[in-house]
Amino acid sequence: MGCVRSRHIKHPPGYEDPVILAAETSFTVSDVEALYELFKKLSCSIIKDGLIHKEEFQLALFRNSNKENLFADRIFDLFDLKRNGVIEFGEFVRSLSIFHPNTPEAEKIAFAFRLYDLRHTGFIEREELKEMVLALLNESDLYLSDDVVETIVDKTFSQADTKGDGKIDPEEWAEFVKRNPSLLRNMTLPYLKDITMGFPSFVMNSEVNDA
């Protein structure tokens, strides 16, 4: 299927026309075709069905398909737009486009908000923030006492929750990020501007004449 490089082109489920994807994202048609080269590699690393399963996503991120990580789970879930447990090519391109340097900051801010709104309540709540801090500490093998964690969470919350209602809404989040732009640092991948350089083989597999 999508795992076999062949001129007799048969695409996996979820494949979408690069021309359409380019029109809807920050990528060019060539970029999308180069991303397809990466997608083929990731989606056939364990289960050879041309879809990215969570284990394959974890393998690409951590070189370990069994590594549990709260944040990788959240990213996977946000990429999985159809919520069917796998990332299809169209979902992969549309989601990665958020991380493109040319994508408006407002989209990055909104994505980061959804990322941190663990329970999908439309707010980032104090308990969620503490849970994420504890997950980060656990992942990093760092130890901070509960008092210190509480202090960090309280201080951050007091700065972000400007309305003082015990939760951070999208508007407060956007204002907080404007005051702390470093929070969006990992929402931009400069490499995406040069994705065709990383996967030059897209030219061989292009289906678009003037790509």
Partner: peptide, 24 residues
């Protein structure tokens, strides 16, 4: 540590470093 921004701390997670996807 009391001066740390919790979100700044969280953003250092390896799980949020998607650049790794592009490493050969």
């Amino acid at each position: 540590p009391a001066l740390m921004n919790a979100f700044e701390l969280i953003s250092t997670s390896q799980g949020l470093n998607l650049g790794t996807l592009f490493e050969k």
